[in-house]
Design a protein around this nucleic acid. Structure first.
Lengths: 256, 256
DNA sequence: GCATAAAATCTCATATTATGAAAAAACTAC
DNA sequence: GTAGTTTTTTCATAATATGAGATTTTATGC
């Protein structure tokens, strides 16, 4: 079980519960989740769950497969999503940077965002040669701690939060080429020292990555930009250059 | 003022109000809306509004520009959006169709969805030659009744709902080359007869469009596929061919 | 720079609303 | 057909949201 949205200080219990359920459904994958699963995952009473979920279905924030009676994100969510992407949010703010990084290097670039214990791909530009990536397409995700963009965000959280997230994700690391807690902690240390995260074929053989968090002063890192390239291309100085490019773009984004 | 989400039958007032506010913010454009505006638009008490909005900001479903104190859609919404796009929702279901229509014609294709009184662009494939479109990029929108995809959806709603939407949008039509209620009603009639909507340079000079709604049996049309092409390319039989292509793809989508 | 207006935020007694245990209904599997 | 599981509905009760008004903060005019 992965606990999700933290309660908002005062009062609004129903909304907190609603967001927690939305999070669970969003995390639930393409097959959706049943009422029973959602009740178990959220710890809510089945009736309460049922009531909230059905209201959300009524508003099309969620959809229910009538056949299998499973809940998944609904059409209105997709619309909110494209709207959110248009506004002055993180996606718009990084659009130019992403394209420019792609153009200046020829490599695949990603915009990742922190979402609970995961790192979600919000946007990407494909490089000249098709490289396999951990997240696949937009919307894909990996546990926080896996991959350069993901490590980059994790590395600049408070230690308490890092510990909490690493512990929550422990069971999931092994499926990434036997990643371990120790390796993740080592990567965090390296990343903090260097300012950006580097992976040299550690996750996908022959594929390297460089990632740097986008940190608005006074806030926790919520997003990161990253490169994915062939290890073969990562000769001497290349990683450093890519780190410098990321820094340049991120400074511009944060500065505006 | 545009009324938005209808209340869900029983009970959940807070959630209804919350969704109404989310809708208003989603419609609010890139500059966002102030508390006062949202209170006025929603008809809610200022304090109630404030409480709900701030809870949503706490959950990052909304964001607030601290400078101008305006509310807009937040980062979590963007994440829900990309997740919703991945699942077995309308975007995924139309992905192949959109690409194939683009490939078979060389023209720009759109997936539009109904959202309150608007038609929102959920996805698109750019054609060989860049044509100006009403909605611009993904997330862009037009009033229901403007544009072929938009007319296509409107045409197959109940008459009551059509009237309601047309009346709500009256003030917005004039900015589209002096579109009028009469013209919209005429287009609806044509579309119902033909099965798909056609526009021949009526909205953007020299630009034609063909649109057809995606109708799941027993449901109201919620989405549409459409083409945008140069009028010059729309010689005899072309529009009919495009209509047939749309029908073919939509049958496949609905059938699955 | 100060005064005035306007908007946003906070407080709290009250009534409305959400809650969840339990019962009923609808599926599933055998 | 029956037993077991999951979903849906019910309803008395407790808990929560509500909104008028007070207070603070921000914007505007002079």
């Amino acid at each position: 079980m992965r606990p999700t949205a933290q309660p908002s200080s005062g009062g609004a219990q129903l909304l907190d519960r609603t967001v927690a359920l939305l999070d669970l459904v969003a995390d639930g994958g393409v097959d959706g989740l049943s009422l029973k699963q959602l009740a178990a995952l959220s710890g809510l009473n089945t009736a309460t769950c049922h009531r909230i979920l059905n209201t959300l279905v009524g508003h099309k924030l969620l959809a229910r497969d009538d056949k299998k009676r499973r809940y998944r994100l609904g059409a209105r969510m997709a619309i909110y999503g494209v709207r959110a992407a248009r506004g002055p949010g993180i996606i718009s703010r990084c659009e130019v940077a992403l394209t420019r990084l792609r153009r200046r290097t020829g490599d695949t670039t990603h915009l990742m965002a922190r979402f609970n214990h995961d790192s979600v791909c919000l946007d990407r530009r494909d490089g000249e040669c098709i490289v396999p990536t951990l997240t696949g397409s937009i919307g894909g995700f990996v546990p926080l701690g896996v991959g350069p963009g993901s490590i980059a965000m994790l590395a600049f959280l408070d230690e308490d939060e890092q510990d909490y997230i690493i512990r929550a994700n422990l069971g999931r690391y092994a499926s990434y080429r036997n990643l371990t807690e120790e390796k993740v902690r080592q990567l965090i240390a390296d990343t903090r020292r260097r300012g950006y995260a580097v992976d040299m074929g550690g996750l996908i053989p022959g594929i390297a990555g460089v990632g740097m968090p986008i940190i608005t002063p006074g806030e926790k890192p919520g997003a990161a930009l990253s490169f994915t390239l062939l290890c073969a291309k990562a000769g001497p100085g290349v990683i450093e250059r890519y780190g410098a490019l990321l820094e340049e773009e991120i400074n511009a984004i944060v500065g505006q």
